[in-house]
Every structure is written in C-alpha cells, then in structure tokens.
C-alpha cells in the first residue's frame, strides 16, 4: 500500500503509514466500478418503494383464507402477524407445495402450522446489496421489510431483478 502523502510502500493492511503516520484506512474501502454496483452499495431498501402496506394475515386464520387472499392480490407469499401486528412468519407458495398439498384437512388448519417462522427480514435503511445477500444466500424470493418488529413491506426477487435490469438498460 503506497502512502498517498509520503509515497512510502507499506505492508498490505496497515492502518497508518509506518513512515508518516498518515491514515491509510480509506485506501481499502470498497469502491463501485459501475452504476449497478454503486446502486447496490448505496441505495437503500426504501429506494425501491416496497413500503406500501404489506398484505398480512393473522396466524389463526385458515390456510384457505390465506390462499384466497394471495390469489386475490396476485402474490406468492403472505406475511403472518400476531395480534400485536408483529411479524411471526411468512407463508409462501413453496410452503403450500411442501406442507399443505395432498394431506386431508390441511386446508382448514391455521396458517401458523405451515408458515416459515422467523423469516430473514431487512429494515428500510439496509442497502440493496444486503437484501441481495439474503436472497441469494438463502434462496428466498420474498424478504419482508420490518420496523420495530412490524412488517412495513415486502421486497421480491422480481423487484430486485427489475431494478438491476433497468439500470443496465439506461
């Protein structure tokens, strides 16, 4: 690492220049190489405007009701909240496929029996890179946005894809 003030060649990872004590930490900060990367690093979740009231259902509601609501709103996952409005879990098409379909009577049981508990969630000030990290690492298609434990939106994999491809096209 070459010190920007005195030109001394320091060992990689040094925090200050061993010759002139100049602060070297800014040299190692990641920098974006193009606009997509910059957007991922700097833009926050709220930039994608997922903050419309999310579609939620209480844990006691029946699977039948959850499915009807998902179809009506044309969504693939619904957030399950408790009586205080705090996020309890998420119920998605995958849960429907894996746990509900094919067993008698499941349709009348409460959603909380089949939902995915404590889903990976983000806050509205997290960066898009953080959301992408969660999605890609966990294979999630929907990530709830929460504030003080209460859901305030959902980010879907489609939102992310649309955002990135729009930046590529511009």
């Amino acid at each position: 690492m070459i010190c920007p003030t005195c030109g001394h060649d320091n060992l990689p990872g040094n925090e200050v220049c061993s010759n002139c004590q100049h602060d070297l930490t800014p040299l190692d900060r990641p920098a974006a190489t193009n606009r997509v990367e910059r957007s991922l690093m700097e833009d926050q979740v709220q930039a994608l405007k997922p903050l419309t009231t999310p579609i939620t259902i209480t844990g006691q509601a029946k699977v039948r009701e959850a499915v009807a609501l998902m179809l009506e709103r044309d969504i693939g996952a619904i957030l399950v909240v408790d009586d205080a409005g705090k996020l309890q879990g998420i119920f998605s098409e995958r849960d429907l496929l894996k746990k509900v379909a094919g067993f008698d009577g499941n349709y009348e049981r409460p959603v909380s029996d089949f939902m995915t508990r404590r889903p990976a969630a983000v806050s509205k000030t997290d960066t898009l890179a953080y959301v992408l990290h969660k999605m890609d690492g966990g294979g999630y298609r929907h990530v709830p946005v929460v504030e003080n434990g209460k859901p305030i939106g959902v980010l879907s994999v489609r939102d992310m894809l649309r955002h990135i491809t729009r930046l590529c096209r511009e």
């Binding site: 990641p30 997509v36 890179a129 990290h133 890609d136 298609r141 994999v157 489609r158 894809l161």
Partner: peptide
Amino acid sequence: SVKRIVHYLVEHFPATVHNQ
C-alpha cells in the same frame, strides 16, 4: 429459474453482496 438469474447477477459483484 429467476433465482439462477439473481445468482448470475450476484456473481458480478461478489464482494459487494457478500461482504456484509
């Protein structure tokens, strides 16, 4: 799948996305 596409996009910025 769309997941595979997202993974492809992430492969372009592994450090940005995975160093959290």
